[in-house]
Design a binder for these strands. Structure first.
Lengths: 261, 261
DNA sequence: CGTCGCATTGAAACTTGTCAAACATTGTGG
DNA sequence: CCACAATGTTTGACAAGTTTCAATGCGACG
């Protein structure tokens, strides 16, 4: 949609349907900031394959349109929004959630720095779920159309994107195994150990971290009620596997936790 | 791995590890048959985007190496196998299953004619789960390396592959909602309606079909025990929602089933 | 300082799993 | 072609795990 169309749309009072189309686009337009450089980004290694030439890197730079800031509780995009961009979390964290018409919700993932958002939109051209910031966060905005172009030019980049998508498929199938076969304590243990690993990979402590999500959101991700999450954490604490002060988690016995799973 | 390497490997007794590498490759080599033509395949519309020129179609033909027949109960590939090929189900049906080291199993999908297998392997270069034929089946074998090449040449083919992967991501996240939020009867109803739709899309009856999988496999897919699957089907039958004679299913009241979900 | 959302904990209710037995179906070898 | 074995299915009774409902405490924020 060209910006002239956006202007026209606002000359009369836009319908909710039209607003739904335009708002995410406008958000991205107005937030467009000075050129974002992948070539100097510390997260470069997660967005691009290793071994790109300087020339190739600057080609990649050219397709990262902008960064966007999303405040805690706000959505990056919602189910039904037109798909145009992929997003890379630069700072902060998000949840992806699918809402059924009857109000049931399922959190399908939590994304932290260096992880990808928006791949669900390619299939139909519209996003399949909502993405909500768990804290004030920043994402890089990548035009998917331009990404496809770059992938036709640079083999390694093409394969990198394919790996990214396949990784999402593998991640989801692991979560399906968790939801399908594990009991409550196993699920919580697996969840904490997975987070722990991801924090470690970012250079943070694997033993102590701050949960950005509520017990309800954890439960919604693990397929159980918030009370069960709370009880399980209390039990782990009683068993000296961890120390939980609200959202602050300290893992005391990672092997013991791993033995649960 | 060139075929000379395969020959060498067999001059002495190969180790289990070496066999594990070679067997799937050999299987694909020996089954190589006369050229398979996508251009004349009735399933063409699922494997290729619409609107390819004759020239482009013949380019696509060139990368479908062969078809392969898999007997009921045999595996197409297994977790840990080297990833080289994607597969399109030409006839028959499969289950994809992840086996945890402690023996827990999760069926992550059932694939019927026109559906894709193997996307999980791109991530690490090795397959992440087992694929087992539920009946004697035939797949088209597609070299992924060559597919990537074609995708760099033909925009629409590139986008088609991206849609395929994204569709898998969306499918899995729907299954996660099922596993995370639904009760047994809702899961079974959703499962039957989903199968029904897919059969319908293939031109078969949406009301009456033959399940290729056992109650145990259905349970393993839906995150419940086979007894619960059986009881749920019996209840549906008592409520005149469907008629189940073993694996033969006749849906009597699709709206009633949909109301369960 | 009160309110609101979040977290914890207990008791009862419900759903699903477990174990066991009987029956049905399929496939195989005599 | 039949008999038998193996596998798959159905059903019941009981146990276990999780949810539901309810009460209470905690901490952030206006």
């Amino acid at each position: 949609m060209p910006s002239s169309a956006i202007r026209e749309a606002f000359e009369s009072v836009p319908s909710p349907a039209v607003l739904r189309e335009i708002v995410p686009i406008v958000r991205d337009e107005v937030n467009r900031s000075a050129a974002v450089r992948c070539s100097t980004c510390s997260m470069r290694n997660v967005c691009t394959p290793p071994g790109l030439t300087a020339e190739e890197l600057s080609r990649v730079d050219s397709i990262v349109c902008t960064t966007r800031t999303v405040r805690r509780g706000d959505t990056l995009f919602r189910s039904g929004d037109l798909f145009q961009y992929l997003y890379a979390v630069r700072a902060g964290s998000f949840k992806t959630v699918i809402v059924h018409s009857d109000g049931r919700e399922q959190v399908t993932g939590f994304q932290i720095t260096g992880e990808t958002l928006g791949l669900d939109g390619i299939y139909t051209g519209r996003h399949n779920g909502d993405v909500v910031a768990l804290e004030d966060s920043v994402v890089c905005v990548i035009s998917f159309l331009q990404l496809e172009t770059v992938c036709r030019e640079i083999h390694t980049m093409q394969h990198h994107v394919h790996r990214l998508m396949s990784g999402e498929i593998v991640r989801e199938s692991r979560l399906m195994m968790l939801l399908g076969t594990m009991r409550a304590d196993q699920r919580v243990a697996a969840f904490l150990l997975n987070l722990s690993q991801r924090f470690k990979a970012l250079g943070y402590s694997s033993a102590e971290f701050h949960l950005r999500m509520t017990r309800r959101e954890i439960g919604c991700y693990l397929g159980m009620k918030l009370e069960t999450v709370s009880r399980t954490l209390s039990r782990f604490q009683r068993d000296r596997l961890l120390d939980a002060q609200g959202k602050q988690i300290r893992i005391l016995d990672p092997e013991g936790l791993a033995a649960c799973v």
